[in-house]
C-alpha cells in the first residue's frame, strides 16, 4: 500500500514538474520522474508478494513456474520503456541547450516568440 501511495505521489510530482515548472531543466527533471513513475507502475503490476526472479529452472513445469515467480512481461516492457525514456531525455537536453543558445535563458516564460 505504501508503494502504491508513493507511486501516485511520483506520478503527481512528474506531471507537476513537466507541466507547471517554468525552468526548462526542471521540466526535464519532471519528465524523468514521470518516466520512472510509469516504469514503477509497470513493475508493481507484475509484482507478486514473495515471488522470485522469473527464470525457469530445467525440468520445471509451467504451472509451478507461474505460481513461483513474478510476472516477467512488465519487466520486459520496462526495459523498452527505459530505452524510449533515454532517447526522449537526450533529445530534450539537446533542445534545452539550443534554447539556451537562441534565447540566452532557460526560463520558459521568456521563451515565447510564438504567439497567435
Amino acid at each position: 500500500m505504501t508503494m502504491w501511495a508513493l507511486l501516485i505521489a511520483f506520478l503527481a510530482v512528474g506531471f507537476y514538474g513537466l507541466l507547471a515548472k517554468r525552468n526548462v531543466i526542471k521540466k526535464i527533471l519532471g519528465l524523468t520522474i514521470l518516466d520512472h513513475a510509469v516504469n514503477l507502475l509497470l513493475i508493481m503490476i507484475g509484482y507478486r508478494h514473495g515471488g522470485c526472479a522469473p527464470i525457469r529452472l530445467p525440468g520445471e513445469d509451467h504451472a509451478g513456474f507461474v505460481a513461483r515467480s513474478v510476472d516477467p512481461i512488465p519487466q520486459a516492457l520496462v526495459l523498452t520503456s527505459i530505452v524510449i525514456g533515454l532517447g526522449i531525455t537526450m533529445l530534450m537536453v539537446a533542445l534545452a541547450l539550443r534554447i539556451r543558445q537562441c534565447y540566452r535563458t532557460l526560463d520558459g516564460t521568456e521563451v515565447n516568440r510564438l504567439k497567435g
Binding site: 537536453v93 539537446a94 541547450l97 539550443r98 539556451r100 543558445q101
Partner: peptide, 10 residues
C-alpha cells in the same frame, strides 16, 4: 559527443 560539442559551442 553531440552534447559535449554543444557545450563547447555554448
Amino acid at each position: 559527443l553531440a552534447i559535449v560539442a554543444f557545450g563547447h559551442i555554448l
